[in-house]
Simulated assay, not measured.
Amino acid sequence: MPTQQPSPPIDLDRLIACPNCDALYTTPTVESQDKAYCGRCHTVLIAPRRKAGKQLIALALTVLILITAATLFPFLAIDAGGMHHDASILQTAFAFEGALLGLSVAVMMFIVVIPMLRLILLIYVLTPIIRDRPPARWAKRAFGLSEALNPWSMAEIFALGCAVALVKLSDLAQVQYGPAAWLFAILVVIVVVTDSLMCRYSIWKSLDQ
């Protein structure tokens, strides 16, 4: 009887899984500015870009500045019944007391602390890479934590939710958008651009080297 030849061992480092449908592929060679898509759900798997690291750091620093300013500046002003009141996100967060104190903490964590922590971790990971130096200590853990926090980073979701709420509130009172509202609008655009520039596969590959 013919003997069955053992199959060659699989190089796990050459495999890549789709984050959406878990389809498994052998990592293709992708040139800069090209993209590799999942054949099942068409999710972008690899999208390397030249100087993307420097652009990501610049965008991350910009978002950090915007979040800080948007937290301190007035978000909106309301005129109703001859009374005027304006408030910043920081003032609103600390306005809760007692049983609502947990809501105050959640607001600050989801729209300020976690987004800023993700950006700081991203800058920490990318800075040595763009300078052609070995990865920073604990860079893999830092980038893994940054990715794990991504679903909990809700600064842009907060901005969109406020936009919808303020449209409905304008029927009851005169609402004026403060500087922080416009900063959050800019922040949403930059966050989308940052996500489109980031090639997670390329970052992990650089950390492995």
Rank of each mutant, 00 (worst) to 15 (best):
L117K: 12
P74W: 03
E31N: 05
A136M: 13
T68D: 07
I130K: 03
L160Q: 13
S196I: 01
L76N: 04
R133Q: 15
P134W: 00
P128W: 03
D11F: 03
E31C: 04
I10Y: 01
L12S: 15
A52P: 08
G82C: 05
K54E: 15
V44Y: 09
P115L: 08
L61N: 15
L100T: 06
V192T: 09
I111E: 09
L59R: 00
Q174R: 09
H85D: 09
V192P: 13
D22H: 12
V193L: 14
L187C: 14
T62F: 01
M1I: 04
P128Y: 03
D208F: 00
P128E: 07
I57A: 01
V164T: 05
A173P: 01
S170H: 06
S153F: 05
I16S: 02
Q33P: 10
A99F: 13
L207M: 12
V175Y: 12
L119N: 01
A77V: 13
A17F: 12
P9F: 00
D171S: 10
C21A: 07
P135V: 00
A80E: 08
L197N: 00
S7N: 11
I65C: 08
L160M: 15
K168V: 15
Q33C: 08
A70F: 00
A136F: 08
A70L: 02
Q209I: 11
A99Q: 05
S146A: 14
V191G: 01
A58P: 00
C38T: 11
S7C: 08
V30K: 04
H84C: 04
A185G: 15
E147H: 10
G82N: 06
L149W: 02
F75T: 06
I203Y: 01
P8Y: 11
L145K: 00
P9Q: 08
T127F: 06
A155K: 04
K205L: 00
V193S: 10
H42P: 02
S146D: 10
R131W: 04
A95M: 06
L24Q: 11
A47R: 05
A87H: 14
Q176R: 14
P8W: 09
L59C: 00
A181C: 07
Q5H: 05
G82A: 02
A87Q: 12
L12D: 15
F143E: 03
I10A: 04
F184N: 09
L72F: 11
P8I: 13
A17G: 09
V63W: 10
Q174W: 09
A139W: 11
L183V: 01
C21M: 10
A47V: 01
L145E: 02
I157C: 09
M83I: 09
D132V: 10
L45A: 05
V188F: 14
K51D: 14
A60R: 01
F96R: 12
I89C: 02
C38V: 05
S202I: 02
L61V: 00
S202C: 10
I114W: 03
R40M: 10
L72V: 03
A148M: 11
L61M: 13
K168F: 15
E156G: 07
L121Q: 01
I78M: 11
A159T: 07
A148C: 01
